[in-house]
């Protein structure tokens, strides 16, 4: 299906959602990250915790996505990436992304985020260089795709908070999961 079609589907899906102010989400997320930074000794374990929380959110959020987005099964991983970038991100965070940088096997790509509502009011001091502030989103994508039996790896590779020009998430397809898999989180 075409990119235009997905853009439209994302708009429609978002219009059907209950809304909350983006600022409130940003403030809440900021407070959460602050608390994690206080609780954990190492910044890396904050990243891990954020990713884990995202994963838990993703495995629940995907149900709502499948129910409300009106998107059918994806043809291939390229299709999946477009759906995440144009429909899922739009529907939940009211932003879209561009999918670029495909490798030759079409198993890895980069999502270039046009905007990230979590980043509002945020400035990272130099001492926090190791913090992947938006890592939650990566967890959501991983958790969501795992529920549709697709194992991926997903992480921020560029972040405007760290002085990069754009925010970019690297997304890589790993394998299709068999029906019975172990829920690593429970």
């Amino acid at each position: 299906m075409s990119r235009q079609h997905y853009l439209k589907a994302g708009e429609v899906a978002f219009s059907k959602m209950d809304k909350v102010s983006a600022e409130l989400l940003a403030l809440t997320y900021g407070s959460l990250v602050t608390q994690l930074l206080k609780d954990k000794e190492e910044i890396e374990s904050v990243n891990v915790q954020l990713e884990k929380m995202g994963y838990n959110i993703g495995i629940r959020l995907v149900d709502e996505f499948l129910a409300k987005s009106g998107i059918g099964p994806c043809q291939d991983f390229r299709d999946t990436a477009e759906v995440i970038a144009k429909v899922a991100l739009k529907m939940f965070l009211n932003v879209t992304a561009d999918v670029t940088g495909w490798n030759s096997d079409l198993t890895a790509c980069t999502l270039v985020l046009h905007d990230n509502p979590l980043n509002e009011f945020v400035e990272l001091p130099a001492s926090m260089a190791g913090l992947k502030y938006g890592e939650l989103i990566c967890g959501v994508i991983r958790g969501g795709l795992e529920q549709v039996h697709m194992r991926v790896s997903c992480t921020f590779v560029k972040d405007v908070l760290k002085g990069d020009d754009t925010s970019e998430i690297a997304l890589e397809f790993k394998e299709i999961l068999k029906e019975e898999f172990v829920d690593e989180d429970e």
Binding site: M17, V20, S21, E23, N56, I57, L93
Partner: peptide
Amino acid sequence: PPAEVAESPFILLCNEWIRYTSEA
């Protein structure tokens, strides 16, 4: 006007935070 996002991820985020705080 402040941009909006969907409510469900926000609620889930709050729940995750509550769960984390409680378990910690």
